[in-house]
């Protein structure tokens, strides 16, 4: 399985009000792969993700899907191909898991149609995939942070898009849940060929789970490529202003960044 959508941005500038954050970025998202955007706090990762997802209008440049600018698509049609899970979505009070996941079906329903068999199946499949079926009729408020995040991802899965963008899906989770979420997203990518682009704050997990890395610094794309090519001592120094050594991750053979602070350095 897989999808053949070409998804790219050309000479992209965007930001808020008069403040330009993204400073002329060109990128082509690799098909059927997991791409991870890395960079320091405030460098514009979320802004970039939102701009390519049409949540922010670029001040210059284009985001194109299959050669057509994304703002030229009817919104629902675009929403059947491209989905984004933003960093802090709103949780309505008292909503159940099944209700929330079901809201991901919106772009597949027309104004007058109710729920079809396909809608129910998609919701069940998404809940099954994220291992939340047992909570289906629970209130979201009753769940732990890790379970809750799985519910949100299930909502995005129910949308059944070929391209899925996620902004820091693992932030604020314990390490166990971080690995669990990233494993689930990898299964998703392997099973359906979903193109995944996400922002992660942990560089080592990024290096392990990414097929492709985009490194951002002050709104510019400073490096891109396979983790083993991109993540180097020099890159970490330039984008995070951190001295480090990069060794090989004993589990995955991917780069592993070991930071050097001022203390605890053996002489």
């Amino acid at each position: 399985m897989g999808n053949t959508h070409s998804f790219r941005a050309d000479k992209l500038f965007s930001g808020y009000d008069n403040k330009t954050i993204i400073q002329g970025i060109d990128l082509e998202i690799p098909k059927n792969k997991i791409s991870v955007i890395i960079g320091a706090n405030g460098c514009g990762k979320s802004t970039l993700l939102k701009t390519v997802a049409k949540l922010i209008k670029p001040s210059e440049g284009d985001v194109t899907l299959d050669g057509k600018a994304i703002n030229k698509y009817p919104p629902k049609q675009l929403a059947r191909i491209l989905g984004i899970l933003p960093q802090s979505p709103v949780v309505p009070e008292g909503i159940t898991v099944a209700d929330l996941v079901g809201r991901g079906r919106f772009p597949h329903q027309s104004l007058f149609s109710g729920w079809s068999k396909k809608d129910y199946e998609a919701v069940e499949e998404a809940m099954e995939f994220m291992n939340i079926t047992e909570f289906a009729n629970h209130d979201i408020d009753e769940l732990s942070g890790g379970q809750r995040q799985r519910v949100w991802i299930a909502m995005a899965l129910a949308q059944q898009t070929d391209i899925l963008l996620l902004d820091e899906p693992t932030t604020f989770l314990d390490i166990t849940y971080q690995v669990e979420i990233l494993d689930l997203l990898t299964s998703l990518n392997r099973k359906y060929g979903t193109t995944i682009v996400m922002v992660l704050h942990d560089i080592n997990l990024s290096a392990r789970y990414a097929d492709y890395i985009f490194a951002l610094h002050k709104g510019e794309l400073v490096a891109e490529g396979k983790p083993s090519d991109v993540i180097t001592t020099d890159l970490v120094k330039s984008i995070f202003d951190l001295n480090c050594v990069v060794i090989q991750d004993p589990i995955s053979d991917t780069p592993l960044v070991i930071p050097k602070g001022r203390y605890h350095v053996k002489s």
Binding site: K50, A53, K54, L55, P74, P75, K76, Q77, L78, A79, R80, L82, G83, I84, L85, P86, S88, P89, V90, V91, P92, I95, L100, R103, G104, F106, P107, M155, Q159
Partner: peptide, 15 residues
């Protein structure tokens, strides 16, 4: 219902 999840999620769902 989709708007209840925030403007960003709603936009992502085609609203």
């Amino acid at each position: 219902n989709a708007l209840a999840l925030g403007d960003d999620v709603a936009t992502s769902l085609g609203i």
